[in-house]
Design a protein around this nucleic acid. Structure first.
Lengths: 215, 215
DNA sequence: GTCTATACATTGATAGAC
DNA sequence: GTCTATCAATGTATAGAC
């Protein structure tokens, strides 16, 4: 048996996945546009043209990373809908929402680099616009789930569902800005915190503090 | 009296502020790095060198925009602390927090372009790093305020205050991703929504939905 | 799978006239 | 305040040998 994690075969070189990992890390560090193929080559310790052996273009690197992130995210929705365990009994919208939110946090944490890249895409090229379109579809489906949960009576309905969806995922997505693996919070704990804030809010159930009585 | 909004005097040309506005809009559209001075010139209908008459460098444009956003944001904290109206009675931490959150939403909405730009800064250059440092200071002060509110008994204290601050401002900051002036939500309404979700959560006060009784 | 060498466009910025 | 002309540097990508 060959050693673990050996590149394709023979030779010292990289495979596509290894090049992509380094590229995504650099894209997140400097921004996609500010990252030249030359610095990728530097980081990999190979020449620029060696990179073009693995990928047709710089944008192809971006496309593959974005697809990875989107596929993971879309998987969360699919699993929440279709995995009520063994029986056919459908879950309540509230329970499916819970799964989606926790699942999204887990995807962010586990696919941190590619999701980070996805969340920074602005739509300048076709590749980016396609990625944004897939994100919008995801957001729409979550919004539909929120609406279901409201009709079920589980969620307050005094705020526009689209606004709620955006605030919710604004909160969740912002995790990529600060979360670093190995920190004190693991993904489960973080998901608990998100759910706690989003569903129950920060205010203590105790009555609000009033100004102290006049002296 | 000369007409309103007339450029400096004589000549058709732009002043610094007008150039900056166009630049910030373009930076947000394409990303700072992907925006060339040439496209700025195109949008302004002047030549590249005319831009360099107003600003020493492309980065100076960025710096001025970031400073504007940061100054506005810092003002929110200062006002929340120091503006209890006319009397010297200090506000509760909960009330100051309320002011800060609402104030932040208003700054986002009113200074949308420059704040958007600020929130996308990654720290590649000295200018960017200085901006990030000011942001961190702001975040630290909000965290301190959150801690005060917890000690006061107004907020739940089972979640790390730094995590709460990040989730809270993750939610608020994400507004720049979708809010467009003239939409159905104005800043006040939006601030109400943010406060509602953050403090009271999405769950209905009614008991949670349970599975329907067995048939 | 990697290399050197190179093509060729675009970049941020400057010089100096009007 | 704006222009034309120009610069050196850097950008993405390719050719062809090993």
């Amino acid at each position: 048996m060959p050693e673990l994690a050996e590149p394709r075969r023979g030779r010292p070189g990289y495979d596509q996945a290894a090049v992509l990992d380094v590229a995504v890390a650099a894209f997140n560090e400097y921004g996609y546009d500010a990252t030249s193929v030359a610095v990728l080559a530097d980081r990999l310790g190979i020449s620029k043209s060696a990179i073009y052996h693995h990928f047709a273009s710089k944008e192809a690197l971006l496309e593959m990373a974005l697809d990875r992130a989107l596929t993971s995210l879309e998987g969360v929705l699919a699993e929440a809908d279709a995995a009520p365990g063994e029986q056919a009994a459908a879950l309540s919208a509230a329970d499916r929402l819970d799964r989606v939110l926790r699942g999204a946090v887990h995807v962010l944490v586990e696919d941190l680099p590619s999701v980070t890249l996805l969340l920074r895409v602005r739509g300048n090229t076709d590749v980016e616009r396609r990625a944004l379109a897939r994100r919008r579809t995801f957001d729409r489906e979550v919004t539909a789930l929120l609406t279901e949960a409201r009709e079920e009576g589980s969620l307050r309905s005094d705020i526009d569902a689209r606004v709620v969806e955006r605030l919710l995922f604004g909160m969740i997505n912002s995790i990529v800005e600060w979360y670093r693996p190995g920190g004190p919070e693991d993904a489960d704990r973080l998901a608990d915190d998100v759910i706690a804030v989003a569903l129950d809010g920060l205010r203590t159930s105790a009555p609000r503090v009033s100004p102290p009585p006049a002296p």
